[in-house]
């Protein structure tokens, strides 16, 4: 596969993978994901935030920069005509078209009491299920124990 170099002087034989970290909040639950990402030198890194509220997203981007996470570029995407899980799938599908492999990292709270599931959206497993049919895509749901 040709690398899109400035003047096509070189090309890659095995393309670099992409590690896509889904970011809903900038707090401790993203730390294991960042730590994992730092151990993936063979992957390009990208953080993706699906924005449902522009003000919240602005604050999230500010926190991202202030906490020094800018070594992973943060992409803020506004979801289209889809639900949250479908929007994630679309983003991943689009990325996977140009990559040999995509690793999706989903930070999630580890909920151990039944009532906590009523108070939190646990989309990690739903995302993993939705992505399992995609070729060259694997998903890691990274639980953060409360």
């Amino acid at each position: 596969m040709e690398t899109q170099g400035a003047d096509q002087r070189h090309h890659a034989v095995t393309d670099r993978g992409l590690a896509l970290i889904l970011i809903s909040h900038v707090d401790r639950r993203v730390l294991p994901a960042l730590s994992l990402a730092a151990r993936l030198p063979e992957f390009d890194l990208k953080a993706v935030h699906l924005s449902f509220d522009p003000l919240e997203s602005q604050q999230l981007a500010r926190d991202w920069m202030e906490l020094g996470f800018a070594w992973i570029p943060l992409h803020i995407t506004e979801p289209g005509d889809e639900t949250f899980v479908d929007s994630v799938r679309s983003v991943v599908e689009e990325e996977s078209e140009e990559r040999s492999r995509v690793l999706v990292i989903v930070p999630e709270l580890d909920l151990d009491r039944w009532w906590q599931t009523l108070l939190h959206r646990s989309t990690g497993r739903r995302i993993a299920r939705s992505l399992q049919a995609l070729h060259r895509v694997s998903t890691i749901v990274l639980p953060y124990a409360l």
Binding site: L31, L67, Y144
Partner: peptide, 12 residues
């Protein structure tokens, strides 16, 4: 419990 301060973040 989830709040992060800059000092909590490992050196990049």
């Amino acid at each position: 419990s989830l709040a992060i301060e800059p000092e909590d973040v490992r050196p990049v």
